[in-house]
Amino acid sequence: MIKAENLTKIYSPCGGCPVTALDDISLEVADGEFLAVVGASGSGKTTLMNIIGCLDMPTEGRYCLDGTDVSTLDSRGLSSVRSKKISFVFQGFNLIPTLTAAENVELPLIYRRMAAAQRKEIVKQALEAVGLEKRANHLPLELSGGQQQRVAIARAFASDAPLILADEPCGNLDSKAGETVMSMLRQMNKMGKTVVLITHDNAAAKTADRELRISDGRICV
């Protein structure tokens, strides 16, 4: 699914010293694998996730997603890849505050130009899968943190992308809500999705098929 070779990312702030966030990282993730990328704060794991998620481009190196060399794609191509192949579950949930839970889940399907009737059905199924069918018409602010993260997972579930990138999905949650979210990610992995979990929590990382430790922009193990 993922093949990254010699990825380097250097940030060059205006008037400041260049910062190397990723330093010559190579990795491969197989289809249906559950990989945990573990590292301390500032180790470069989120930068890695942004590049894997086609939100950012590496300064150097080559990255192929599902056989497509992402480095060669323009903005439209990257959008298309994100729409079809990647779902994100962010630490801060990243739900749109003016849209209800159902509308948030529906949004990626709208961008895929899916028919309204089909969208409604998928949204219903996704919210049922995370146990939030009764909160479909609630705004994010009317939901707890755990519920908001479940809406984000429902959004990933609805978009049916083969790759799920979860960046500290339990970071803002209590342990019980965190466990629920992790079990949902595992469930999605069992359904055949490739999951890349970015975390600093060793316990959460243990649930993955494989751990990849990252420190100062380099892979340690």
Partner: peptide, 16 residues
């Protein structure tokens, strides 16, 4: 801005 970022991350194209 953040909303735009979220939309783009879930597949919105610049045209959208």
């Amino acid at each position: 801005k953040r909303e735009i970022g979220i939309k783009k991350s879930i597949g919105a194209k610049s045209g959208d």
